[in-house]
Design a protein around this nucleic acid. Structure first.
Lengths: 207, 207
DNA sequence: GGACCACTGTAACGCCGTTAGATAGACTGA
DNA sequence: TCAGTCTATCTAACGGCGTTACAGTGGTCC
């Protein structure tokens, strides 16, 4: 067998070991952020600590890899939302997707957004953010933003989403209103964005 | 000297020791949530670990005591805000006070709202919440809430405040809009609450 | 065969929260 | 006054954590 195939096989083996470690990490994480520790991971995945440190920089690095994987799925999902005619319903859909994701993946969300401040968001999430940016610019140019500052409009919606998720995560017991997520996002959008000027020629389909 | 006075003196001594421990805790906490540990507190305050555990149940209990003190100040501040004529500007003032407090006391805020979900908020904060409740009821009865659910209106504003603070805490580096806090609270209130019905007899002073 | 390299293991280090048990001193009642 | 009790404090340890120095092992390459 050729040297190239040997190398190939080694790479595969390596990837497979890392996969095993990552999967065990994932499993452990699903039992709660606090359930995860390197020692427990060691018990669970069959490898010893130095092996894990051989494949990943440290605990942080291991979790980063996992989060990148998971959040890139969110990024894809958001990027696949059709932009359509109406920027407001587009923003609504994105915000809803984001909040639902955060609530469904509380442990991952916490790790990503509640850890060290110098932690950069994964590229796919950042890409989604950039994509949103253009929508806000569009609304600003159309004179539809009620805030004096374009930045503050985007950040307002983001802050609300973060608050919704983080409230749900940290106070699971509280009796949150069933319609809270939709209601609050709608209210925020109403408050931020004025309806389009009346004098547009063509009629819009109700999206 | 009387037995009563002896007891009194002992109580004072006890209170003073606890004060010392709490103050050292506070100092340590101001250096960051992560800077705080019982071992470091022990180095700092001159007492040994068992002494601390003699006066406080455990780490959690110690922090609880400190947070109760600190947050009761917030509760007082909020309860002192004049309710005035206009419920909207009252809600605005309360929300602003809350957010500013959170941003100014990030470590305390984190400890209180980001710890175990079963953690109850201190009584003074809860009192403030109850006081707010009446304002929402009033608005609801006047038919001014745009949400289908009274609960969701209150929770929307709260979620936003939480998001604003927690965003600031976890992404200090990000370039937050200077007007974000006011802008977003105003937007949320605009989106949640309709202007009062026109057919009121008396004119209002512009508050 | 020998040098190199990726991989994995043993055993330890220095943190952490917490506690069992001893000691000292002050108060209490006979 | 003296034994008994209670409070406050200490020394020393336990079990957990993330991490790493170091050794061994088994392949790959010259």
């Amino acid at each position: 067998m050729s040297a190239a195939s040997q190398q190939e096989r080694r790479r595969e083996k390596r990837a497979q070991v890392q996969r095993t470690i990552l999967d065990a990490t994932e499993t452990l994480l699903l039992e709660g952020v606090d359930s995860f520790s390197i020692r427990r991971l060691v018990e669970r995945c069959g490898y010893t600590a130095p092996t894990i440190y051989h494949h990943f920089k440290d605990k942080e690095g291991l979790l980063d890899t996992l989060l990148d994987e998971r959040f890139s799925r969110l990024g894809d999902k958001i990027r696949r939302i059709p932009q359509g005619d109406d920027p407001v319903s587009y923003l609504r859909a994105v915000a809803l997707a984001f909040v639902r994701f955060g609530i469904r993946n509380p442990n991952h969300y916490q790790l990503l957004f509640v850890r060290d401040p110098d932690q950069a968001p994964p590229p796919t999430v950042d890409a989604a953010r950039v994509q949103l940016e253009t929508v806000w610019v569009e609304l600003w140019d159309a004179g539809r933003l009620r805030t004096g500052d374009r930045e503050s409009a985007a950040q307002s919606l983001w802050s609300l989403c973060h608050g919704l998720i983080s409230g749900r995560i940290h106070r699971q017991d509280a009796d949150w209103s069933k319609t809270l997520i939709e209601d609050s996002i709608d209210a925020m959008l109403r408050g931020l964005i004025a309806p389009p000027a009346k004098r547009t020629r063509r009629r819009k389909k109700d999206a």
